[in-house]
Write a protein that binds this DNA or RNA. Structure first.
Length: 379
RNA sequence: GUGGGUGUAGCGUAGUUGGUUAACGCGCCAGAUUGUGGCUCUGGAGAUCGUGGGUUCGAGUCCCACCAUCCACC
């Protein structure tokens, strides 16, 4: 019996608590992206517990291709498979329609893909996506949508969004059917709908109103941070979030930078996810209170300080910038791992501070202070 | 010691019958990256072409000597 408990509001910012079968999610939350059932960079689920991860995010498409959702199901579902008993959100594979463009054909019934592993042809529609996510038995399943390019023509976006609505209805029906089956692993799996419409605010609003009527347990804003400016993204959020149910969590998909998150929270967003902390960590970048730092820069060659003074993450408690730089240069996995841990800790800790600020009614002030800090530049 | 080969950026190489500002990969120095392939992309710095002499309007390229290095044979 999932429900969203709204604890406090400051302006449009929401402090909430989402109750799920796998435990409570304190919001606003940043979900840690582990596409294939693992956070890249040799990060274990024990690590996730240590760095304060609330929700792990995996991908339907990737797990369907390898190892196969039926195998995960036969092993007891994704929670048991990866040894993680807290909430998991699975993305539907819809975004791969967009990100693997060139390898796909979109039709009314669904999408024909080509596997990025071995090139074989795959079909995925709303029903297939729900069946796969049911087999994975995640806490939250995302609707199978199409994410049109931010520069797509208005006419294309209109018909794409209408199809996404039809797909959402099919997702809802299929999820209800699967949740009613006696041998389904997680019979309380939750379906979140996804708003689309590129940068056309009227299409976005119409779509938000339509999908809100389906009374799903949560809603996402998709198709942002895919090429448009920050101003456009914030404007769309200003317009669209008020048209999504305020008594349900709102999830801004794929976003973003620490500044994007502060702005998103300020506009009523509860859930975030982004590959930035993990991908940039693997690529040698660290997030700090003073902006982003490239640990591969020569100036850190003899820097004995931790990445961030006072940070309680596993990297900063013990290792120097100089050592991490050396590991990155030597292409040692440990370098990546330490920065991924630092970055995810940084994001998770940022969210914790945001929640505390909301609890104490000083979010607006906190946001201003943090944004100013990020502008200062690295030490 | 004799014969042969090779010397071009930190490393590995390309460079036409001698012809503008000597090219490429890796590395180095920076920058990009938003529902993830650990990549990828974009810039930048860096070379008195082993040394010295010669031929020529002009030499990385041809000639001579020397130096270094590799291979084979004593």
């Amino acid at each position: 019996m999932a429900h969203y408990e709204l604890i406090k509001v400051e302006g449009r910012a929401k402090r909430g608590r989402f109750h799920t079968v796998h435990g409570i999610i304190e919001t606003p939350v940043f979900m840690n992206v582990g596409t294939v059932g693992a956070i890249k960079g040799a990060v274990s689920t024990e690590d996730l517990e240590e760095i304060g991860t609330q929700v792990e995010l995996s991908n339907t498409y990737h797990l369907h291709v390898r190892p196969g959702d039926k195998i995960v199901r036969s092993l007891g579902g994704l929670h048991k498979f990866m040894s993680w008993n807290r909430p998991i959100l699975t993305d539907s594979g819809g975004f791969q329609v967009f990100s693997l463009a060139g390898l796909r054909k979109i039709k009314e019934e669904g999408v024909y893909f080509q596997s990025h592993i071995d090139g074989h042809r795959i079909f995925m529609g709303p029903e297939e996506s729900m069946q796969i996510q049911s087999n994975l038995a995640s806490t939250i399943a995302m609707a199978f949508d199409e994410c049109p390019s931010s520069v797509a023509e208005r006419e294309y976006v209109e018909q794409s969004v209408d199809r996404t609505t039809r797909w959402l209805k099919r997702c809802k029906e299929e999820m209800a059917r699967l949740n009613s089956l006696p041998d389904t692993i997680n019979r309380e799996q939750l379906l979140f709908g996804i708003n689309q419409g590129a940068i056309y605010e009227d299409i976005r609003i119409r779509h938000a109103d339509e999908i809100s009527e389906l009374d799903l347990p949560g809603y996402a804003v998709g198709g942002l941070a895919v090429g448009e400016t920050h101003e456009q993204m914030y404007h769309i959020l200003d317009e669209v979030v008020p048209h999504l149910p305020q008594n349900k969590p709102t999830y801004l998909m794929g976003v973003g930078t620490p500044a994007n998150i502060l702005e998103g929270v300020d506009r009523g967003v509860d859930f975030f996810d982004c590959v930035y902390p993990s991908r940039n960590g693997r690529h040698g970048h660290a997030y700090t209170n003073h902006g982003r730092m490239n640990l591969q820069n020569a100036k850190y060659e003899q820097d004995e300080r931790p990445v961030e003074e006072g940070c309680q993450c596993p990297a900063c408690r013990r290792y120097s910038r100089a050592y991490i730089r050396h590991l990155l240069k030597a292409k040692e996995m440990l370098g990546m791992r330490l920065l991924v841990l630092h970055n995810l800790y940084f994001y998770n800790h940022l969210m914790e501070e945001i929640r505390l600020a909301l609890d104490e009614g000083r979010f607006s002030q906190y946001k201003k202070m943090r944004l100013a800090g990020f502008e200062e530049g690295e030490e």
